[in-house]
Design a protein around this nucleic acid. Structure first.
Length: 277
DNA sequence: TTAAATTCCTGTAAGC
DNA sequence: TGCTTACAGGAATTTA
């Protein structure tokens, strides 16, 4: 499922092809995938717009449609199984294709999503936040300005399990189940410990593990553990480097004991009872 | 305010 | 083999 590194890969791949392109037509095939504004208005407002920039915030892909401080944004969240692809129009249409944008270079930008947990939005950031369509996201964990002290300040006032806090997009943006479990393992932190119980050194390890892991995963073009594919339909490589995610019951790579499986924040959580304290 | 539970959705895999 | 059931999870929504 797409988390920060996967979304970053898609945005970076699309950027050189989309910037400067104008949307010549917009066809929403499955209306409920568009959460703002009404799908018919979404199609009309998007048509004729020029894409000026493509960026990422948390797990959201942002297409900037104006050159100003508060641009109109086409926002794409991939949910669990969403795929955004830039293809020639003659490419055979896959199942679960929910939206198609025609571009002035003859290509199409297609949104496909088997489980339909993803969403499309159109509006300024302020408008979308005010409408409750876009949450107030926490800091970017790959931003050099995000320090261990910042993370400590956010964790030590909370009693929820660290795992739940890492998944909370208002605490830190872009972390999902895979990288939450993996960063706790690398930092040797038990995922069920209350955020407030972590020492500064433990948070320091967690901060370093999280940032290092996310940068590594971006370099490896993300983890294809389920249906994740990049803008060309290709898999990432990071899944081969995962140490705990999806390995419940199997031996810990560090100590050899079977990895524990518990449920935290409604998510399957895998960790090593010996290595993570 | 915070935290936990529930909901959405379909492909996959386990179990009988 | 074929059917049923459980499970996977991001985030909005509901409940406590």
């Amino acid at each position: 499922m797409p988390e920060l590194p996967e979304v970053e890969t898609v945005a970076a791949d699309l950027r050189p092809h989309l910037v400067g392109r104008t949307v010549t037509a917009c066809d929403v095939r499955f209306p409920t995938i568009v959460r703002h504004p009404e799908p018919a208005r979404f199609e009309v407002e998007l048509t004729g717009r020029r894409i000026e920039a493509v960026s990422r915030r948390g797990k959201y892909i942002l297409h900037h449609l104006d050159l100003c401080a508060s641009p109109l944004l086409l926002v794409v969240h991939l949910g669990m199984t969403g795929q955004l692809r830039y293809v020639p129009p003659e490419t055979p249409e896959p199942d679960h294709l929910h939206a198609v944008l025609d571009l002035d270079d003859g290509h199409q930008l297609r949104y496909r999503d088997t489980r339909r947990f993803g969403r499309l939005l159109l509006g300024t950031e302020a408008e979308l936040v005010a409408a409750g369509k876009l949450p107030r996201l926490g800091p970017e964990p790959v931003d050099p300005g995000f320090t261990a002290s910042d993370l400590y300040r956010r964790l030590h006032v909370r009693r929820a399990p660290v795992k739940a806090l890492l998944l909370d997009q208002m605490v830190v943006a872009g972390v999902g189940n895979i990288y939450a479990d993996e960063s706790c393992f690398r930092a040797r932190v038990r995922p069920d410990r209350p955020g407030s119980s972590l020492s500064r050194p433990a948070v320091g390890r967690l901060h370093g593990a999280l940032a290092g892991l996310l940068h590594e995963a971006i370099a490896n073009r993300g983890s294809s553990v389920d249906s994740y594919r990049d803008a060309w339909g290709e898999m990432g490589d990071q899944q081969h480097l995962l140490q705990v995610y999806g390995r419940g019951g199997k031996p810990c790579f560090r100590c050899g004991r079977p990895l524990a499986v518990v449920r935290l924040a409604g998510r399957t959580t895998v960790f090593c009872r010996r290595c993570q304290r």
